[in-house]
Design a protein around this nucleic acid. Sequence first.
DNA 1: ATTTAATATTGCAATATTACGATAAAGATT
DNA 2: AATCTTTATCGTAATATTGCAATATTAAAT
Lengths: 110, 110
Amino acid sequence: MGATKTEHFTGKQNAIAGLAKALGHPARVAIIEYLIKVDACICGDIVNELPLAQPTVSQHLKELKNAGLIKGEVEGNAICYCIDEKAIEKLQNYFGNISARLTKKKSTCC
Amino acid sequence: MGATKTEHFTGKQNAIAGLAKALGHPARVAIIEYLIKVDACICGDIVNELPLAQPTVSQHLKELKNAGLIKGEVEGNAICYCIDEKAIEKLQNYFGNISARLTKKKSTCC
DNA sequence: ATTTAATATTGCAATATTACGATAAAGATT
DNA sequence: AATCTTTATCGTAATATTGCAATATTAAAT
């Protein structure tokens, strides 16, 4: 059929998949990196930073926001976007945990 | 239109996006978690662990392999899958780095 | 050599994503 | 009020993903 069978997986699995999916496009990775680079909320220039048309960028921002990776607030006639640290922390913890488990129990098989 | 404009982004951005995309589906997250849980290469039972048909699971495994998240070796009439630690490390480093940068420079804006 | 077991591939339908032109909405500027 | 600037939404085309039945492949077991 084509639709993801979300209901068959745990909430945590869907949560991680949701965050990962949002970062599963180079434009969205680039947006996150730009937000970090300038170390501020961005009111403007995101569109100029990316090799994509304005509606496309707007759509990517929307997806990042829906996934909880960024927050956006209206600031005059611009909109102020920043990274939501909680989401990044979740990812960091998740992969840190996996990494720790992998090095600890080193299975000999492969 | 409709195809991702990969060529407009850096190799690193595409690399992270590729790994993230592979984890952007709960079934693939579940596969990774199962591989960690049993702490071994899995020759068999992955299909039984997931609420999906065998061809679908096979396809997800293929994608994880293409993305470099798992390695697979033929082992008799079964195939032995294990996590590729390097990929997990890349993700851990990436998000660790972002997290560090965020807490260090704490911007006051949002 | 046949059968069995495990995994992969093919083909296809349903759905989702990506991208952008056109247009709308909303606050700032004149 | 008219205009400019910035961001969002709509509509639509191109492409990708998801899922599975049917079938193929491959190696072990009989």
